[in-house]
Design a binder for these strands. Sequence first.
DNA 1: GGCCGCCAAACTGCATGCAATTCAGGCGCT
DNA 2: AGCGCCTGAATTGCATGCAGTTTGGCGGCC
Lengths: 252, 252
Amino acid sequence: MAPRSAGKNAESSDKVGVICRALRRAIIEQALEPGAKLPEDSLGERFGVSRTIARHALGQLAAEGLVELRRNRIAVVATPSWQEARDAFDIRIELERLVVRQLAGKLTKAQIATLNAHVDAEDGARDGTDAVSIRLATEFHILLAQMTNSPILVRYVSEVAYRCCLTLSLYSRPHSSECAINEHRGIIAALVKGDEAKVMSLMHSHLDSVANRALVAPAPQRGRDLLDILAPYADEGESERVVKMPKVARVR
Amino acid sequence: MAPRSAGKNAESSDKVGVICRALRRAIIEQALEPGAKLPEDSLGERFGVSRTIARHALGQLAAEGLVELRRNRIAVVATPSWQEARDAFDIRIELERLVVRQLAGKLTKAQIATLNAHVDAEDGARDGTDAVSIRLATEFHILLAQMTNSPILVRYVSEVAYRCCLTLSLYSRPHSSECAINEHRGIIAALVKGDEAKVMSLMHSHLDSVANRALVAPAPQRGRDLLDILAPYADEGESERVVKMPKVARVR
DNA sequence: GGCCGCCAAACTGCATGCAATTCAGGCGCT
DNA sequence: AGCGCCTGAATTGCATGCAGTTTGGCGGCC
């Protein structure tokens, strides 16, 4: 008597799926910032399962790129580099163009209603947290992907959208969601109208503008490893103070 | 003293990675046909690890779509439906167009040599098994993806290429690799020449032809669940013989 | 005072054990 | 003989335990 879903997805095996979904959501809502530690026991304790399960969940999330898993080290929320973020957006653009291409002119009335309702929800959440707006905006895209009825496409779009979310929380400024909402409405309209070329280019420019709003400069201000950030300063900035290097050259 | 790699990938944690790679290879070389059972302890025994590790590896492969994991049931090699195969190819086309777009005119001499060497290897393996040719052909595409230096892109192209491999073994006839090899050479040439549009359209038609060679008719001859195959016959084909239905309606 | 090395606590890597579920074959019934 | 139920073997789901590695903090030394 599984409540719902219980689909064919690997992770919905039960407890693992619950943990994955919870963590995913926490991550994209920035309750867990990039770099946050995720010790297995803490997770297990929090969700009432053993480390085995928590570990498995972390493995899944690592496969999705939301979590970084280093051997013998505490798992942390992934911290994508600027380049990775750029790559993710590039891929996302192609995938979502495919989505809307498949969807143009083929939406049912119910689907259109669902989409409009979602955008209304985005609208309603404008005074809420940035985190919630970002999540809703992301979910809009996932919703679109789901309407293609292609599980593979859904999975890839979801993954890459989550990754983009992550980078948004790293590199983006306070975030202005208004334009995004309007762009969403425009995409729906073009989808209904059935103009493939139009909706593809709309989606392209929409994602492009989101990316550009986020990835203005290739300067990971808060990002990365602290060592990488300070590397350029290490050569000449001796007047300040020297940074202690724990060992020698890092492998990468 | 990890031999090599040990990269940032989740699965290279060691033993899990070994098992994943081995199974992946076995699957795409059709040593393990779709539907083949993968019991945890057999795997564990075979690779000299405990069920825990084997289980984890199966989880990773399931996340990649190569393995189907049903609760309380033995894991099996995935058996993509015809539609899923079609979707995979659609996605693959977009992703690989992105790959060659990024690569056009930017290949180093060493990379070009690597690619040519690989195609030569494909050529040399023409009298070998079909399985090996298919694997080599797939690896050519993965090689290309790796040259983009975009880990995300590599992962997605790899995954989707493996999935396509899987469907090839399901729906394809004996396979003729010659044309594919020539098409690979053509792609290399266009990449070197640096003609973005040309190489994108080449890649598109290459993958399209591979897909069409494989997915001629939406008729999963060997595929699926035996029940699904017989479903269309169940209505009118009583003159033959009736298939025993184990229970009642399957959930899906 | 600052730096280095050592040690205990924390955490992961992995195997094993037990309960729950599925699967397959045999038995009895019709 | 055919069909279905029922029981035991096989297999998964999950927790726990032990060994090895990392972490960070304390004391000693310069």
